[in-house]
Simulated assay, not measured.
Amino acid sequence: MRILVCGGAGYIGSHTCLSLAERGHQVVVADSGVNSSARVVPRLRRLAGMPVPVHRVDLRDRGALSVLFATYRFDAVLHFAALKAVGDSCRRPLEYFDNNISGTIVLLQTMQAAGVRRLVFSSSATVYGEPAQVPVREDAALSVMNPYGRTKLVAEQLIGDLCTADTGFRAANLRYFNPVGAHASGLIGEDPCGEPTNLMPYICQVAVGVREKLRVFGGDYPTVDGTGVRDYIHVVDLARAHVDALEYMVREDRSVTVNLGTGRGVSVLELVHAFERASGRRIPYEIVDRRPGDAASVFADPSLAQELLGWRAEFDVDAMCRDAWRWQAMNPEGYRTSVRRTPVMRVRRPKIVAARVADAY
């Protein structure tokens, strides 16, 4: 199939492009460049072993998106494109609503106009808020605690309403927990803009000397060592799940909503110690006050994904840390590391459409 990957130059999107290529699918990337680097593209093409057209398109740009759908005949869309930091969403809620929700609406309208009726949506465990019990099942109550989570929940609801109105539209909502790790090659990985807001990239930057020490928020939770427990999932496992979900929709002609996690909680200090083993470096840390709204323990029940998709996580926390450290050690400044540039793939614009698709990289 030919797949449009929105946000395909980002962390999870780029790994999923590789998984799609490995299964024999053709990939076209649309990315605004807000949460990604141009330098991922030649690395992605090198690993995929095939041309990967990449276009700078903001999903809210209806004209540019329409040109892209008129240029290619897509069989499905994978939608990763979103602003994604919880804390930042609390400071800039309107920007998150505009980007994440408006962009999704325009994408769905463009898909419908083009007759593309399969979508895999990058959702999040934040739609559960602070769950009443763990492990978290898909039928748990939905209760968001921040604007970012609200954008994911609203997008799921929009997609669900479209599936009800258009009985031929199929969607997979994938609620994932805490993606970490990197591709085994060390060529692509997580490269946050500015100070990391997630635990693993912060640990990586402490290990490589970019940050002095790690702050651990809360050391008095009712957990194995007093620190918060989360479900960390290797990004390669996560990427594979997106392709499994896509192929499930095609095979079964059904929509699906599933959790993606390992089903095992790992505390902050357990992750720190695993990273120290993987890197051979000490990670200095200090325990500070809890953050408001942080739950003591959150991890997934991933059994439905295994039952329906035949998917389960394969990598353990030691493998996650080894691959994350390999990426950071090979790329201490992220994608700012110099790479050989690759010629840009260009799209020929149909004469009947006046809007323009800008080549991104």
Rank of each mutant, 00 (worst) to 15 (best):
S37Q: 12
T227A: 04
R282T: 00
A296F: 13
V266Y: 01
V353T: 09
P196T: 09
R356H: 12
A140V: 01
Y72V: 01
V180R: 00
F275D: 02
A360R: 04
T197W: 09
I105V: 15
R62N: 13
R62Y: 09
R56G: 14
V216D: 08
R60E: 01
T16M: 10
V256L: 10
T110N: 06
Y232M: 11
A305L: 10
D244R: 13
G8F: 07
D244V: 00
E314D: 11
R349K: 15
E247C: 05
A245P: 01
N35W: 11
Y361R: 03
D75V: 07
A300G: 06
Y148N: 02
T151H: 00
R46P: 00
A239E: 07
S89M: 04
G310H: 04
R230S: 12
T151Q: 03
E286R: 07
F97E: 03
P201S: 08
A305G: 11
L187E: 12
A30R: 05
G24Y: 07
V57K: 02
A82G: 05
F177K: 01
Y285N: 01
A296M: 12
L271G: 03
P350K: 00
V136S: 14
V120F: 00
R254H: 00
T197L: 07
N198C: 03
T223H: 04
N35V: 11
W311A: 02
R56H: 14
S124Q: 07
P343Q: 09
H183N: 15
V134T: 15
W327K: 04
E276A: 04
H25K: 02
P51L: 14
S124V: 05
T262L: 09
F97A: 11
M50S: 13
A172G: 08
G263E: 04
F177C: 08
A64Q: 03
V229Y: 09
V243M: 03
D166E: 14
G228A: 15
G263V: 06
V127D: 02
T151C: 00
F217Y: 15
G13A: 12
D88L: 13
D231Y: 08
G129M: 05
T262A: 07
G149C: 06
V116M: 08
D318S: 14
A278M: 09
Y361P: 02
A70C: 09
N331T: 07
